[in-house]
Amino acid sequence: MREPSATVFVIDDDDAVRNSLRLLLKSVGLPVQICASAQQFLPSYDPRQPGCLVLDIRMPGMSGLELQQQLNVRGAIIPVVFITGHGDIPMAVEAMQHGAFDFLQKPFRDQDLIDRVQRALERDAANRAQLKETERIRSRLESLTPREREVLELVTLGKANKVMAHELGVSQRTVEIHRARVMEKMAAHSLAQLVRMMLTLRGSAPAPP
């Protein structure tokens, strides 16, 4: 199945601001979808859809902050660029604490918005790539036998085959066979690569370059 293209979702209750953002983003060739309220956006949004949100922090009904929290609850990873007014700095800080990608104070220079949107889209692509990578690693991990899992744990702790054989109470030869199987199943070419995969899975690894 072909990947859906990255889309910028603009959510702002002010007609003029919303439409002007649409035109601005369209002028640099970005696919844009606009929406007048958070309530309208939320049920129609598919978390698999890549892109980013340009979100007015202050809206009647569900505010931008509340939408961000709803998306967090649903595990959506789409980056959010908040648009704020002058008096909204405390809200912007709160948004950043909840994982917002960035924020912009109104009115802003077009380049600032476009730069942030571009970076947000890159981040989203990277996040999605990493997510895909994580999925891949996880499915490989699931193909290991319990004994192979044990060997994997010990290998990534940097234990030598002899030590592992002693700890597992098997022969060194058996450990070597398990280890080769692990490398093969995990599609790892080196110990370093295997370690990085495990770190990725724990979510503490930097995105691959």
């Binding site: 002010d14 003029a16 601001v17 439409n19 002007s20 953002l21 035109l23 601005l24 369209k26 002028s27 202050r58 648009i83 007014g85 002058h86 008096g87 909204d88 109104k106 009115p107 802003f108 220079r109 077009d110």
Partner: peptide, 16 residues
């Protein structure tokens, strides 16, 4: 805030 809205829209439209 209410003043910022049209100003932001104007800036966006002009830049676009």
């Amino acid at each position: 805030h209410e003043l910022n809205q049209p100003l932001a829209a104007i800036a966006n439209y002009a830049q676009a």
